[in-house]
């Protein structure tokens, strides 16, 4: 029995910094940068890094729950991508390709790090306290309404670390980063059904781990 997420569920709203995959001028500009970088033009590659550094870092950070590890891995992913640019055929966008490198590197790292997880969490930004959804969540009259954001953040990260790497990855890419199922399928090189199935099970597990906060 294969359990998949209901197809009627709407994909999360894309954040403003999502890659404009359908945007031809942006892709053309990006391909031009890639061509220049392939010839050793470091300023061109610097431009590419600046475009995607936040998203790559964030993905690695949400997977590792450790700022220092995320910093190292994100840098190494970009370095590896630079040296592997010759093998980039342009079949996918540069964004998807570099994402795939970062994800593979992170999963490799996590397999080696197994059972040695050490949280080094980033601070929450000031907007967190004014986010209407979060305000509603912690001010609801639940048995845990006294919970503060920092505690919630820690519990959430601990719960995320309990998920297997493939499940954590789809939750990170979809529910935290806001990527679509199709984009995730391209990045992790599997079909959309697998992405939906993993997302469903990951959410079920997270819901169980965080039941105190979801009453």
């Amino acid at each position: 029995m294969v359990m998949t997420e209901p197809a009627t569920r709407k994909a999360p709203k894309q954040t403003s910094d999502e890659p404009a995959e359908g945007s031809v001028p942006v892709q053309a500009e990006e391909m031009e940068l890639v061509k220049r970088a392939r010839k050793g033009d470091l300023p061109a590659y610097d431009d590419l890094v600046r475009r995607y550094q936040e998203r790559i870092y964030a993905t690695v950070y949400h997977m590792t729950a450790n700022h220092e590890d995320a910093n190292d891995l994100a840098q190494e992913a970009f370095i590896k991508a630079f040296h592997a640019l010759r093998s980039f055929k342009g079949g996918s966008s540069f964004y998807t390709w570099v994402y795939r490198i970062a994800v593979n590197k992170t999963i490799n790292f996590l397999k080696q790090r197994k059972n040695k997880a050490h949280l080094s969490l980033n601070d929450l930004d000031l907007n967190a306290e004014h986010d209407p959804d979060l305000v509603a969540l912690i001010s609801e009259k639940t048995p845990r309404r006294e919970v503060n954001l920092a505690e919630l953040q820690e519990k959430l990260n601990i719960a995320m670390q309990k998920l297997s790497e493939p499940h954590r990855l789809v939750v990170t890419l979809h529910d935290v980063q806001g990527l679509s199922h199709e984009e995730i399928a391209k990045i992790i090189d599997c079909n959309i059904g697998t992405v939906r199935s993993r997302l469903f099970y990951a959410r079920q597990q997270l819901q169980a781990y965080l039941s105190d906060y979801l009453k």
Partner: peptide, 27 residues
Amino acid sequence: QLRRLLIVKRHERPPPGFFDDFSRRVI
């Protein structure tokens, strides 16, 4: 509710100025 809870993670930010220097370190 879970998705609302996961919004917390979107507000996690590295130290200020971290990305100003990131690409330079890579290069």
